[in-house]
């Protein structure tokens, strides 16, 4: 119960802090800043509560105090943080499927032909922003008008190559 209550409290605190910071200034590398906010609060939050607010309790439950309560709280909050990071990436970047669904919806009851989608969804809209992301996240560099992977990008490619080979799957995308 301790981990669930205080884990939720930590996540909500980090979420509120994110909204405040995002309202003041939208960071350029949003995921990195998000990770920093969430992991800092997860790392120091339980200790701060235990040491500086000894009488503090929610619904009669005090903050984590034993090693196991800390471990459970961290496990829960780290899992929720990772899930939130993944979900947030869909907010940060437009998903082609969701753009297409909205285009079909906006076309009304008569529907939308494929060539209408192809006219609007160009390479500059679907590919170029993701290439820019690779450069912003230091996964690739633009060298004499050629995109070249950095060690970080190579690591990511190897990770997914390996995993998709394990699953026996093709290129994806």
């Amino acid at each position: 119960m301790t981990a669930l209550i205080y884990g939720t409290l930590l996540i909500l605190t980090a979420f509120l802090l994110q909204i405040i910071i995002w309202r003041i200034h939208l960071p350029k590398r949003q995921t990195v800043v998000l990770l920093f906010i969430f992991f800092t609060i997860i790392a120091v939050g339980p200790s701060i509560l235990s040491h500086f607010a000894p009488g503090f309790n929610i619904l009669g439950v005090g903050p984590p105090s034993t090693f196991y309560e800390f471990l459970q709280t961290w496990l829960f909050t780290v899992a929720v943080t990772l899930a939130y990071m993944i979900t947030y990436s869909a907010i940060e970047a437009d998903s082609p499927s969701l753009i297409m669904i909205l285009m079909v919806h906006n076309a009304g009851v008569n529907g939308l032909p494929k060539d209408e989608m192809e006219k609007k969804l160009t390479n500059d809209l679907l590919i170029l922003p993701r290439l820019k992301d690779l450069i912003t996240d230091n996964m690739a560099v633009l060298n004499q008008e050629r995109y070249v992977l950095t060690p970080k990008g190579i690591f990511l490619a190897n990770l997914f190559n390996f995993y998709r080979n394990v699953l026996g799957l093709g290129k994806g995308g």
Binding site: L134, A140, A157, F160, K171, G172
Partner: peptide, 8 residues
Amino acid sequence: IRLVRELQ
């Protein structure tokens, strides 16, 4: 992910 795999 598809782009980094193509580049690699």
